[in-house]
Design a protein around this nucleic acid. Structure first.
Lengths: 252, 252
DNA sequence: AACTTTCGTTGATCTATGTCAATTTATGGG
DNA sequence: CCCATAAATTGACATAGATCAACGAAAGTT
């Protein structure tokens, strides 16, 4: 069943670009706050909705004091950490519905830097002002625990498999995960807009820029995907899944 | 300043094997529960202390309903997940003071299986019985949020670097991380007892069993470490650190 | 203690992917 | 629109580490 959206710019052609609140990772919290709608009694400014973020703008920087949790409404973001030689490495991408910065709450500071890959919008929850909300701290905390737990479980899975896979598997799995995340959030899962550069993908997947290029063009030649710059179309999902799970005979 | 321990079997020779409560990851929670000591008013069985676990025994299995959070008191554990071909892969090791299973709370079930690498002991917190504790749910939740946040931040860092490092770097970093964790928990940082097999290390680091062997013997020959079966001595910490951070010229 | 099984080490190949280099294609500023 | 800079592609080559294989050393079992 179709969902309703307040604004018309949520679409590009036929494709839905903005996540619905009900599909968003911040929703448990928003529910508690009654979406901070007028009349909910929650003071203004605790939950800011649909704040625009320009391409390349930084949401926050690593080590910066923690003030807010963000949820991607539309667009995309990347998280980076500097290594010991001050080179930035991509440690994650955030798509519509994803939560950003929740783990900063424990440390009182953010553990990576985040910037927008394209013109985007976010919802912002100023957590240090939550007690002004008049809502039960218990309910708020419960929502937070739920969100953090999801993050830990997911991260474990993803990185554990990444490290053992070859370039083909990593990229196939990466594309499938983008598609899965889009569909989980109620967005189209066949036509994806990868806002990130090949270098970003390379950094995230631990491969060379050139390898990303080669594998992607091979995937195109074998009819798995279609790729025009940033717009990727899944042509053969089953085939991709096969590449992602391929094993060179069983382990001994 | 030395800390006191109830039992004498916490030592092997001069080396301290058991973590002090004050250094343990579960401590924020235990504090809330006044260590569930007699007279604290907390019903028995919510916090079980120093439960022995025999070598190879399973704490819990993946997908199993979540019931408790564990903290390693002594010994060591490994976490595994099956991949799509039902091969088990190691996704983490737990040493004294580490918390096990906290992220299961969000999903109502555990997201990996955990077994003891050696004869060990754990403290067990039966979280579903926390409301019987008479303690403020708010404080309990706050402690949990803190612990989960730590886990997320740490995991990000570790796996992000693993994927880009070569075999030498991975092993050097791995050894240093074991040493760091031991010292953070107030245990000796020079002589480590790696309870895990070479295969476990290989699985965790995404390398072949044979590569682990080769690198470890090379580390020995160059005087970085001394290794007698499971007992590892750090001879040249600075050297190891250099290996771990070595970069083949700056990235272009 | 003898036997079996698992674990660790070492050597000889082979291959996936990093690195270097050259070219083409996008992108943004005046 | 044109130029300057950055991003992506493609090719040639080098190499780290996987794989295959053989053997030695522990550890568990009868």
């Amino acid at each position: 069943m179709p969902k309703t959206y307040c604004l018309t710019d949520s679409y590009l052609g036929e494709q839905l670009l903005e996540v619905a609140c009900s599909e968003c990772g911040l929703d448990p919290m928003c529910q508690v706050l009654d979406y901070a709608e007028p009349g909910s009694g929650v003071p203004a400014g605790i939950l800011l909705r649909r704040q625009p973020v320009t391409k390349g703008a930084q949401l926050f920087q690593i080590e910066q004091p923690f003030t807010a949790v963000y949820a991607v409404k539309s667009g995309s973001f990347k998280a980076t950490v500097p290594d010991l030689n001050r080179t930035e490495h991509v440690v994650g991408f955030y798509l519509p519905g994803d939560l950003i910065g929740a783990e900063g709450m424990a440390n009182r500071s953010y553990s990576y830097s985040v910037r927008a890959l394209e013109a985007s919008s976010v919802c912002v929850l100023e957590t240090h002002r939550l007690r002004e909300s008049g809502r039960s701290i218990e309910a708020v905390q419960h929502a937070l625990i739920e969100m953090l737990g999801q993050e830990v479980a997911l991260n474990h899975r993803v990185t554990a498999s990444l490290i053992r896979q070859n370039a083909d598997q990593r990229l196939a799995a990466f594309i499938l995960s983008l598609s899965l995340r889009a569909s989980m959030r109620g967005l189209g899962s066949k036509r994806l807009n990868l806002g990130m550069s090949r270098s970003d993908m390379a950094s995230y997947l631990g491969l060379a820029r050139e390898t990303i290029s080669r594998v992607l063009t091979r995937f195109q030649k074998t009819g798995l995907i279609r790729l025009r710059q940033q717009r990727l179309t899944l042509l053969d999902e089953a085939g991709l899944r096969q590449v992602a799970t391929y094993t060179k005979s069983a382990w001994h």
